[in-house]
Design a protein around this nucleic acid. Sequence first.
DNA 1: AATGCATTTTTGTGATCACAAATTGACGGT
DNA 2: ACCGTCAATTTGTGATCACAAAAATGCATT
Lengths: 260, 260
Amino acid sequence: MRSSVPAEFPADTSLRSQVYDSLRDALTAGRFVPGQKLTLRFLAKALGVSLMPVREALRRLVAEGAFEMRPNRSVRVPLMTQAKILELRDIRMAVEGLAVGKAAALATREQIAGLRRIALEIVAARELGDSVTDRKKIREYHFALYAIADQPTLLRVIEGLWLQTGPYMNLLYPGFVSSPRGPEGRARLIRALQAHDAATARREIERDIGDALTYVADLADSAGNIAPASPIAAKRKRQPSKALPARPRGAALFQRAERL
Amino acid sequence: MRSSVPAEFPADTSLRSQVYDSLRDALTAGRFVPGQKLTLRFLAKALGVSLMPVREALRRLVAEGAFEMRPNRSVRVPLMTQAKILELRDIRMAVEGLAVGKAAALATREQIAGLRRIALEIVAARELGDSVTDRKKIREYHFALYAIADQPTLLRVIEGLWLQTGPYMNLLYPGFVSSPRGPEGRARLIRALQAHDAATARREIERDIGDALTYVADLADSAGNIAPASPIAAKRKRQPSKALPARPRGAALFQRAERL
DNA sequence: AATGCATTTTTGTGATCACAAATTGACGGT
DNA sequence: ACCGTCAATTTGTGATCACAAAAATGCATT
C-alpha cells in the first residue's frame, strides 16, 4: 500500500522544534540585528517557554551556522560581511550546481511540469509586488529542483547553506527583483532539464545564484555591516554615528526582537 | 603586533564539548555499529556524566549529520550505504575542489613548505604501517591545504562533510593505502600550488577524493552494510549470516560501545 | 572627568525530578 | 505457532534549581 511518498509525516511537535522554527524564521526574516547578543532567558521569556527548549533550539542553530557562539559562551547573530557573502555564493554555486547537474539526468515530465508551475507562480507574485510569497515560491522552486536529484545528503548541505544565506536575502528586495533576468533564466533551466542537458542546466543555476549573491555582496557594505573585524575594534567608543550612513532604520532591523 | 595566528585559544572546557569530542572520536574510529541505537542514559553512564551534557553533544552531532534522529526521537548511528558514500564523494569533490582552487591562488612559500613536511610525515607513517598516525596526518594535510584558502565558512562545510565521511574511512585500511598513487598525487598538487595552477591543483584533489571514496563505496556492500533501504526490510529475520562474507570482526565494530 | 576596584546582577552550565510517549515483555485467545 | 492486548519498563522531554563565570554597576580615588 504505502506509496513512495509517505503521505504525511508525524511532524515533530516538541517545543524544541517549535522554538527552532520561530528562531529560524525570525532570523531569515531579518528580525535580528547582526551582532545582536541572544540570551537564553530573554528568548525563553519572549517565546513563553522555559530555558530548555530554547537551549536545544539555539544550540542546533549554532551547529548549523545560523548563529555563532562566542568564546564567552554567549550566542549572537553573525555579522554580515561582504567576504562571507561571497564565500557563501561560491559554495552555493558549486553545491547547487552539482545538484542541478544530477537533476538534469533524472528529471521526469511530471517534475518538470511542477517546476514550470512554480515558476509561473513566482512571476505572478512578483507582478503583484508580493515579496513574501515571492521569496517563499523562490525557495519552493529551488528545493523542488534539487529534490529531483534525489540525494538526501546533498539536500541537507544545501539547506544548511540556505539557512546561512537567509538573513541576507532580504537585500534582494526591492532592487534586484526588478531585473527581468530571473524568469528567463528559469525558463532556460527548465528547457535544459527537458533536454537532459546537465551542463546548460548547471550553468543556469550558477548564474542565478551568482547574480543574486553578487548583488547582495555589493550592498553589504552600505547595509547592516556593523562588522568590526576584530573584537578590539568593537571596544572603541561609539563613533558619532556620522561615519556610517545612518543605518536604514526602515529596513526592518530592530534592537530587541519584540514579538518574534 | 597580533599575529594572524591567535597564539592560543581559551579552549572550551565545558563537559558538553568533552562529551562531543568523545562521541565524535568514537564515531570516526568506527567504534559504533551502523544502525546502533544510542540512548542518553547509556551514554551518560558510559561517560560518567549526567544526561545534560550528553543531550547537548548528541543534539549537535545530529545537527551536523554525524548521527541521525528517527521520527521516534531516538538517535542512531547512520546506516552505511553505497549511495550515501557516493553522494559524499561527489559533494566533497565539489567543495574541497573549490577550496583547493582558491588555495592555489594564495599559497605562500611557507605554507607550501608546511604541506610538503606533512606529506613526508605521511609516507613515513605509512612505511611503519602506523595507520593511526597515517589517518591523523592525512587529515592534517588536507585541512592545512584548505586553510590556505582562508575561507572560514567553506572550512566549516568541509569539516561537516569529513565528520559524515569519518566512519567510512577505516575501510581504506589496509587495502587502499598500499596503492602508491597517494604520495605522487600530493607531490603533483604541491607543485601545482607553487605554480599557482588552480585547475591542476583542483584536478588533483578531486582525483584523490574520488579514488578513495570510490574504493570505499565498492567495499560498502560487503562490509558493514546492514542497510535495508526501508525500515520494513529491517524486520526481516536475520539471514543465516552466510550471505555476508562474515563481517571483518577485527575491523573494530562492536555491538556495545564498552568504554568509548 | 577618568580610572581602578569591589559588589551586585546577569547568564550559561550541569544536575535532578516529573511526566508522557514509546518500547518491551508477558499473557491469553484464536 | 501466531497475533493482539495490557502491564511494566525504558526513554526522551521539559521544568526547576544550584552554582560559577561573566558582565554590569556603583563608588571611591587620583
